[in-house]
Computed example of a mutant assay.
Amino acid sequence: MNKKRWFALGIAAVLFAVSIGFQFMSSLFATDVEALFEMPQQQQYQQEVIEEGTGNTIAVVELDGVIQDINTSSLLNTGGYNHDRFLKKLENVAEDHTVNGIILRVNTPGGGVVESDEIHDKIVEIKEEYNKPVYISMGNTAASGGYYISAPADKIVAHPATLTGSIGVIMQSYNVAELADNLGIDMNTIKSGEFKDIMSSTREMTDEERDILQSMIDDMYDDFVQVIVDGREMSESKVRELGDGRVYTGSQAAENGLVDALGSLEDTAAMMREDFEWPNAQLVEYKTGLDWNSLFGGAVKSMVGGEEANVMAIQELLEQSDGPRAMYLYSK
């Protein structure tokens, strides 16, 4: 075989390899990455020792990022909080017979109403059905939905500089009617009922529409208030007085009764050891096993940066549907 023929075969082989590579990458981007790299249940979670000990075990579970239930299976969207994965982790740590107590490390500005409620209910279930104490250790931010999920815990501990509170519900949309008019853009809407396009961004909201939406927000706010009344054993009038939407520092929250104590994660663990007479309890972090999605998501988050990642997550949360949604969310 002469050189020209060998050269042609070499080019063909390279083109074939490139074609296979493109097909693989195309399939990967369209694939549910979590399903592709899914591990057996027993390998999905692992305990990383923070403080050695004997006898009892206290597990730390981190909730970091905006609480949102969005499509996180795409390779282009693997960073940040994953709602389904977090709920499964809570379920797993509840069922783990080696774990005696749980510290939920909360660092979130809140998020979706439904998602926050699902976490709240899971914490109540862990306490009642598994008889395991749940303490909250607040990080930089544990506001709105972050406080909603903290309310049923046995004890809430915040750093003096933690931003918490922001008790309330928010729903927002843009109104670009004037801009569209200036640009000569007309919006044609065919609807089956008077309120089908409620909160449309291309026209002014009517008083009746505003009343409808306000009644929805009021109902959700009532639920938020009741969660705190039940979880903190605080009077409804006191909760409504504190729950005007403002944020509090950890120190202010300790003064007004929204948190029980001030301290770090280590302080929270020490409190649980003392409260339950587990002086030598081991402290572990309950982590999701090493998987492709976590690795890629962590790399994205480290490149973008924590605060920027939260901003991106909030923007993504707001853009998840064509219409606005109610949220337990604190955003600056």
Score class of each variant (00 low, 15 high):
residue 19 S to F: 13
residue 53 G to I: 06
residue 258 L to G: 06
residue 83 H to M: 12
residue 123 I to A: 03
residue 175 N to R: 15
residue 70 I to D: 15
residue 315 Q to E: 15
residue 95 E to V: 06
residue 117 D to S: 09
residue 127 K to F: 02
residue 119 I to N: 02
residue 270 A to P: 01
residue 142 A to L: 03
residue 223 D to N: 10
residue 250 G to Q: 05
residue 57 T to A: 02
residue 149 I to H: 01
residue 85 R to S: 15
residue 255 E to S: 05
residue 119 I to G: 11
residue 14 V to I: 15
residue 91 E to Q: 13
residue 176 V to N: 05
residue 132 K to V: 08
residue 278 W to G: 01
residue 2 N to F: 03
residue 122 K to R: 10
residue 305 G to A: 06
residue 145 G to V: 04
residue 25 M to K: 07
residue 281 A to Y: 02
residue 2 N to Y: 04
residue 328 Y to Q: 06
residue 169 V to E: 05
residue 34 E to W: 03
residue 19 S to V: 12
residue 313 A to I: 03
residue 157 V to D: 04
residue 160 P to A: 03
residue 82 N to K: 14
residue 211 D to E: 15
residue 263 G to N: 03
residue 247 V to I: 13
residue 236 E to Y: 02
residue 37 F to S: 15
residue 164 T to N: 08
residue 307 E to P: 10
residue 68 Q to P: 07
residue 47 Q to T: 13
residue 283 L to F: 00
residue 316 E to L: 11
residue 207 D to C: 00
residue 319 E to Y: 06
residue 329 L to I: 13
residue 254 A to P: 00
residue 98 T to E: 14
residue 158 A to N: 02
residue 231 G to W: 01
residue 93 V to D: 01
residue 231 G to M: 01
residue 34 E to V: 14
residue 277 E to N: 04
residue 11 I to H: 09
residue 21 G to I: 13
residue 50 I to F: 03
residue 21 G to P: 14
residue 209 E to I: 11
residue 291 D to L: 07
residue 170 I to C: 04
residue 51 E to Y: 06
residue 20 I to H: 12
residue 323 G to R: 12
residue 231 G to R: 00
residue 170 I to L: 05
residue 118 E to N: 12
residue 188 N to D: 11
residue 308 E to N: 10
residue 218 D to R: 11
residue 243 G to Y: 11
residue 17 A to R: 09
residue 218 D to Q: 13
residue 249 T to Y: 00
residue 135 Y to L: 08
residue 178 E to K: 14
residue 319 E to F: 08
residue 59 A to T: 10
residue 74 S to M: 02
residue 231 G to F: 03
residue 51 E to S: 07
residue 35 A to F: 11
residue 22 F to A: 15
residue 295 L to F: 13
residue 71 N to I: 14
residue 164 T to C: 14
residue 229 V to F: 07
residue 318 L to C: 12
residue 56 N to S: 08
residue 100 N to V: 04
residue 325 R to F: 05
residue 191 K to A: 12
residue 91 E to V: 10
residue 244 D to L: 07
residue 182 N to K: 13
residue 168 G to P: 01
residue 92 N to M: 14
residue 245 G to M: 06
residue 211 D to I: 15
residue 145 G to P: 01
residue 260 D to L: 07
residue 313 A to G: 01
residue 64 D to C: 09
residue 6 W to A: 09
residue 161 A to Y: 05
residue 189 T to A: 11
residue 3 K to H: 06
residue 332 K to Q: 14
residue 241 E to L: 07
residue 156 I to D: 03
residue 241 E to W: 01
residue 305 G to P: 06
residue 324 P to V: 06
residue 290 L to Y: 12
residue 300 V to C: 07
residue 182 N to S: 11
residue 201 S to W: 11
residue 264 S to C: 08
residue 216 M to I: 04
